[in-house]
């Protein structure tokens, strides 16, 4: 039998962690309990963060937004600050797993699980999100893309938790786009995804763009080169076609039961082509 702890605040959490240094920490449980079923969890105790109010909620602080790591996907989907400022995130959350999983799973959990196919990661990459990491004695902050090292691997050390995600508002980016290709329309694991932010001028010219592909490499893929190629142009098929081969070159996908690496490469390219017909 494993002991399950439900601390109500951070103080309590640090105390429990001190007493149970080997415990696994979880929030929504949508990943942990699946692993438990597969006999992949061997720790004697579990700490659930769902009761810690300090880790929840969305807080606007000037030109930044702090998202509590234990905010469920549903709570973020329904949050007006997120809806207003980060439609790219809302669009991804909307196709994340299923409403039931979204009611339980949290954004912090999605980050810490660090699945190459995680739906919130590409949007958070284009938003240049930073993670706030806390332990009993310290707090640090780092770029999300530095935090995630590989599939299931992050910079999180023993005794640390991700407490929040800091995202700067992106007022100039007037087109937010997210596309996910899965095996079905819901309850799907991404085969390829692409999150995009555009700053498009009145003359339909790309003034700025950020792109991030999911599920095509061990971690989210971005490309300064492609971004630079698009800036200063209209999103014509010609321009996108020219950039597409680069997308194919920079992704490092694998074959798995859902799709082949070849397909992922092709679609990574094609999702870029789609950008020309995305409605504002």
């Amino acid at each position: 039998m494993k002991r399950v702890f439900l601390p109500h605040n951070l103080e309590e959490l640090w105390r429990i962690i001190a007493g149970e240094p080997k415990a696994d920490i979880y929030a929504g449980g949508t990943d942990l309990l699946v692993k438990l079923r597969q006999n992949l969890i061997n720790t004697p105790s579990l700490i659930c963060l769902e009761r810690i109010e300090e880790l929840k909620g969305v807080h606007e602080q000037g030109d930044e937004v702090m998202i509590g790591a234990c905010s469920t996907h549903t709570s973020l989907l329904e949050n007006p600050i997120i809806q207003r400022n980060f439609p790219v995130l809302t669009k991804a959350l909307n196709v994340l797993a299923s409403p039931l999983i979204r009611n339980m799973g949290t954004i912090g959990g999605n980050i810490c699980t660090a699945s190459p196919a995680a739906d919130t990661l590409p949007p958070l990459y284009v938003l240049k999100a930073e993670v706030e990491i806390r332990s009993r004695s310290a707090s640090r902050q780092m770029a999300l893309k530095e935090f995630i090292l590989g599939p299931g691997i992050t910079c999180l050390k023993a005794g640390e938790i991700v407490s929040g995600i800091w995202v700067k508002k992106v007022p100039g980016f007037n087109l937010h786009h997210f596309e996910k290709v899965g095996q079905r329309k819901a309850l799907a694991i991404a085969i390829v995804s692409l999150a995009t932010l555009f700053k498009i001028s009145g003359e339909e010219m790309v003034e700025d763009v950020r792109l991030a592909w999911g599920s095509v490499a061990p971690t989210v893929v971005t490309s300064n080169e492609i971004e630079a190629m698009l800036v200063g142009h209209r999103l014509s098929r010609q321009v996108l076609k020219k950039a597409a081969p680069i997308a194919r070159a920079i992704v490092k996908p694998i074959d798995d039961i859902r799709a082949s690496a070849d397909y992922r490469r092709q679609v990574a390219e094609n999702l870029l082509i789609r950008l020309g017909s995305v409605q504002k």
């Binding site: 299923s98 095996q183 079905r184 329309k185 819901a186 694991i189």
Partner: peptide, 16 residues
């Protein structure tokens, strides 16, 4: 078996 469960053997949802 490469599709051992409902996460890998894909049946239609209400949206499909």
């Amino acid at each position: 078996v490469r599709t051992p469960d409902l996460a890998t053997y894909i049946i239609p949802t209400a949206l499909d």
